[in-house]
C-alpha cells in the first residue's frame, strides 16, 4: 500500500476533470436522443389515420377492468402449469442427456432411443404434439386417462425435454476430458465421475441457456388453451368473443410479460455471474 497522502498529479487531475465532463455529456446526449425517438414514435402512432379505432378496440380501460379477474384466474392455471412443466422438463432433459452419454454395448438401445427422441421432438411442432396427446390419447378410451390439462402439460414437457436434453448434453461435452481423467485416476467409477465431477460443472455452465428456455416455456404453456382448458389466453379469447373488442388479449399479453420479468431477471443475473466467474479463473 502506498502512503495515505497520495495526491493525483496535475496531469491526472486534468484527465479526471475531462472524463467527468465527457460522462455528463454522454448522459445528456442519451436523454436527448431518447426523447426525440419517443416523440417521433408517439406522433407516428397516435397520428396514424386509424389510431382512434385501434385505441377503442385494443386499449379500452373499462373492458380491461371487467375482464382482468377472469384472465387472472386463467393465469393461475398457467403459473401452476409453468412450475410443473419447467421442473418436469428439466428433469427429463437431464435424464435423456445422461442416457445419451452411457457407453457400452448393453446401452445401445437406450442411447438410440434417447437420440431418436431428441431428434424427433425437436422437429415436431408443439401444437401438433398437444393435439395428438390431448385429443388422441383420450380417443383410446383407456381406463384412468388423465384430464386434458395433464395431457397438454405432458405434451409441453415432452417437447421441451428434447430441447433441454441438448442443452444439458452441450454442457456435459464442454467439461474438459482432463476432469474425467482426474476423477477416474482417483478410483471413481464412470457413474461417480459423472455425478460428482461432470454434471455439477455442466449444469452450472448451461444454467443461462436453460433458464432462457424456461422463459420460452412459460409463454408456450399458454398453448394448452388449444386443447380446451381455460387458461389466461382462453379466458381472454372468451372476453374478445363476448365484447367484440381485443382489449382482453392486450391484458393477457401484459400479464404474461409481467410473469416473465422475474425469470428474465434471474436469467440475466445468473448469466452475469457465470461470466464473472469465468473471467475470475485464469
Amino acid at each position: 500500500m502506498s502512503s495515505g497522502l497520495y495526491e493525483p498529479s496535475a496531469i491526472q487531475q486534468d484527465r479526471i476533470v475531462f472524463r467527468r465532463r465527457q460522462a455528463i455529456r454522454s448522459v445528456l446526449l442519451a436523454a436527448l436522443s431518447t426523447a426525440i425517438v419517443g416523440i417521433i414514435l408517439g406522433v407516428l402512432i397516435t397520428g396514424a389515420p386509424g389510431w382512434d379505432r385501434v385505441r377503442q378496440s385494443f386499449f379500452d380501460p373499462s373492458i380491461a377492468v371487467d375482464w382482468l379477474p377472469e384472465i387472472l384466474e386463467g393465469l393461475w392455471l398457467n403459473i401452476r402449469m409453468l412450475v410443473f412443466c419447467a421442473i418436469s422438463a428439466l428433469a427429463l432433459g437431464l435424464l435423456i442427456a445422461v442416457l445419451r452419454t452411457l457407453r457400452g454395448p448393453v446401452f445401445f438401445p437406450v442411447r438410440a432411443l434417447a437420440t431418436l427422441y431428441t431428434y424427433s421432438f425437436r422437429g415436431l411442432p408443439l401444437i401438433i404434439v398437444i393435439y395428438l396427446m390431448a385429443f388422441g390419447i383420450p380417443g383410446l378410451r383407456l381406463q384412468g386417462t388423465p384430464s386434458v390439462t395433464v395431457l397438454g402439460g405432458a405434451a409441453i414437457v415432452i417437447t421441451y425435454g428434447a430441447y433441454l436434453a441438448e442443452v444439458f448434453r452441450a454442457g456435459i461435452e464442454s467439461v474438459h476430458p482432463s476432469q474425467i481423467a482426474a476423477a477416474r485416476s482417483l478410483g471413481l467409477s464412470y457413474r461417480q465421475s459423472m455425478r460428482f465431477v461432470v454434471l455439477p460443472q455442466a449444469v452450472r455452465r448451461v444454467a443461462p441457456p436453460l433458464l432462457n428456455d424456461t422463459v420460452a416455456l412459460q409463454k408456450d404453456v399458454g398453448l394448452i388453451s388449444l386443447a380446451g382448458p381455460i387458461d389466461a389466453i382462453r379466458a381472454a379469447q372468451i372476453g374478445v368473443a363476448q365484447t367484440a373488442n381485443f382489449t382482453p388479449y392486450v391484458v393477457a399479453g401484459v400479464l404474461f410479460v409481467l410473469l416473465a420479468l422475474p425469470l428474465i431477471g434471474i436469467t440475466d443475473w445468473v448469466t452475469l455471474r457465470a461470466a464473472r466467474r469465468q473471467n475470475a479463473g485464469t
Binding site: 482432463s178 476432469q179 481423467a181 482426474a182 476423477a183 477416474r184 485416476s185 482417483l186 478410483g187 471413481l188 467409477s189 460428482f196 465431477v197 455439477p200 460443472q201 452450472r204 479463473g281
Partner: peptide
C-alpha cells in the same frame, strides 16, 4: 477392474486438474 487398480495408484497431472466447483 480398472477402478480397483486406480485406487492403488495415484496420478498427479501437469495441469493439476483440480475440480473447480
Amino acid at each position: 477392474d480398472p477402478d480397483a487398480v486406480r485406487q492403488k495408484i495415484g496420478l498427479v497431472f501437469q495441469s493439476y486438474n483440480l475440480f473447480p466447483h
